[in-house]
Computed example of a mutant assay.
Amino acid sequence: MQKAQLGCEELAILLRNVMDASRIEAETAIKPALINRVSVKNILEKVMVMIEPQVTHDQRQVTFNVPAQLYVYADPLRLHQVLMNVSTNALKYSPEGSPLLFSAERSLEQENAVVISIADKGKGIAPQDQPHLFQRFYRLESDMNSPIRGSGLGLYISRRLVEAMGGKIWIESRGIPGGGSTFHILLPMA
């Protein structure tokens, strides 16, 4: 029964991702009325509440370095969706017991922008694979036959949503096991 329930949950996530991807293809942008001033700390704290059971189960140390005064212009529901996707990927693709880091700061490269970062200490992603990560249905070759499930749509959807909010998303990783990956999300500062 437990395996059947897990299978149903995976199928529901896959269906939701396919529907999100289809809807995103139909929409070219998020309606401006949905863009609001969002507290980065508050939205990341909501994400932390959602992933806390898995963090506790995996016995992970989480570092949270997010100043209270940082605000971005974003659609709060869609930003939450993006942050949840990146966070759950960090949990899935890094070993139990390894740390996670959530941070945010004013962008050093772009004026009036904030960079939200989520870092793990997993296997990392090789530089040659990084340009494909945000493509529709893309999964790493090494993950195709692994027990880690995925549709290859989560990062694609995240990229489209972040771009629709006037931002960008990218990864930094050297592809060294234990070196992990850091996903960065840049959004306009509010």
Rank of each mutant, 00 (worst) to 15 (best):
Y138R: 00
Q135W: 11
E163S: 08
I157R: 06
Q81L: 05
Y138E: 01
V66S: 01
G124D: 07
Q54G: 09
Q59C: 08
G167N: 09
L11R: 10
T182A: 10
D58T: 02
S173C: 13
G7W: 02
S146W: 10
V40Q: 02
G178W: 14
L91A: 00
L161M: 08
V40P: 01
A4H: 11
L34I: 07
I13G: 01
L161A: 01
R139D: 06
E27Q: 13
Q130T: 07
A21Q: 10
A4C: 03
L34K: 11
Q130F: 05
E163D: 06
N85H: 09
V62F: 07
D75L: 00
Y73R: 15
P53A: 13
D58G: 01
S103Q: 13
L155Q: 03
S158M: 07
L34C: 11
K123L: 08
I148A: 14
E25P: 00
A90N: 11
I125D: 11
S142C: 05
G166D: 03
S94A: 12
S107E: 10
Q5N: 13
L140D: 04
E25Y: 13
T182Q: 09
I176W: 03
L6W: 12
Q59P: 02
A90F: 12
I148M: 14
I157F: 07
G152D: 07
L70R: 07
R160I: 08
M50K: 15
Y93I: 13
V82P: 00
P67E: 14
S181W: 04
E52V: 03
Q54T: 12
E96N: 11
S98P: 05
I13T: 01
L44C: 00
E105C: 04
M165Y: 11
A119P: 01
A33Q: 06
L14Y: 13
I116H: 01
P147C: 13
H132I: 03
L101G: 01
A90G: 06
K46A: 14
R136Q: 11
L83S: 04
D75R: 00
P188L: 05
K31Q: 13
N36T: 04
Y71P: 02
S117D: 04
G154R: 06
V18L: 13
L108S: 05
A21E: 15
K168G: 12
L140P: 00
M144C: 09
R23K: 06
R60V: 02
M19L: 13
